[in-house]
Amino acid sequence: MNTLLPILAVFLLGNLLVALLRVARGPTPADRLLAALLFGTTGVAILLLLAFATASAALLDAALVFALLAAISGAAFAQRAWREEQAEAAHDDD
């Protein structure tokens, strides 16, 4: 019924592709890590658009799992980094 959704999904896929090529070029490892952000936002958006375009609830769940994994890994890394920083701060006080 809605032709806009698949068109937008393809547009975002093109965006993601260009962005990934740029990210792969680096030049620093930190630049390449940006791919994690790209999949968390653009990837989720593409899945959402496709879920509505094809009226398939399964893709919506896939998007949810994507976002959930991104958030959990983010939180886990953040907690580790925070502990490291606390340890460093305690070390500095000695």
């Binding site: 952000l37 989720v44 958030a71 983010g74 939180a75 890394f77």
Partner: peptide, 19 residues
């Protein structure tokens, strides 16, 4: 989904910058 993606971007973005 959106709130999860927001939380993920905020934390991951900070970690990449910090690293």
């Amino acid at each position: 989904i959106w709130l999860l993606a927001l939380a993920a971007s905020a934390t991951v973005g900070f970690l990449i910058a910090r690293r």
